[in-house]
């Protein structure tokens, strides 16, 4: 079944992309928090500040936007199917 192959291969590739994007996004956030502490706060526990910031990030809407990596391709495929087959 070609459709099953598409689903499995697509899911596999998107999962790799999601993993890389998630790690990258988290590291960028971490670097920003560290910079914020170094330039503005400079008092208290630096590690605790970063840990707290990352915990906030974990529940944030921005992080959930990464699920778009799964959602957008599905929407694109549905749009292409509609345009190719049902629009003249």
């Amino acid at each position: 079944m070609a459709v099953l192959r598409l689903i499995f291969v697509g899911f596999f590739i998107l999962t790799i992309i999601y993993g890389i994007a998630a790690l990258y996004s988290r590291s960028v956030r971490k670097a920003k928090l560290a910079q914020e502490w170094d330039t503005e706060i400079q008092q208290g526990d630096r590690d605790a500040f970063i840990r707290e910031g990352l915990r906030e990030y974990s529940g944030s809407f921005r992080r959930k936007l990464l699920f778009g990596i799964y959602i957008v391709p599905v929407l694109v495929i549905l749009t292409i199917i509609y345009i190719t087959n049902f629009v003249n």
Binding site: A2, V3, R5, L6, I77, I80, I81, T84, N85, F86
Partner: peptide, 11 residues
């Protein structure tokens, strides 16, 4: 069909 290239042409 569902194959490459991804035009998803069934018509």
């Amino acid at each position: 069909g569902w194959n490459w290239p991804p035009y998803f042409k069934f018509d």
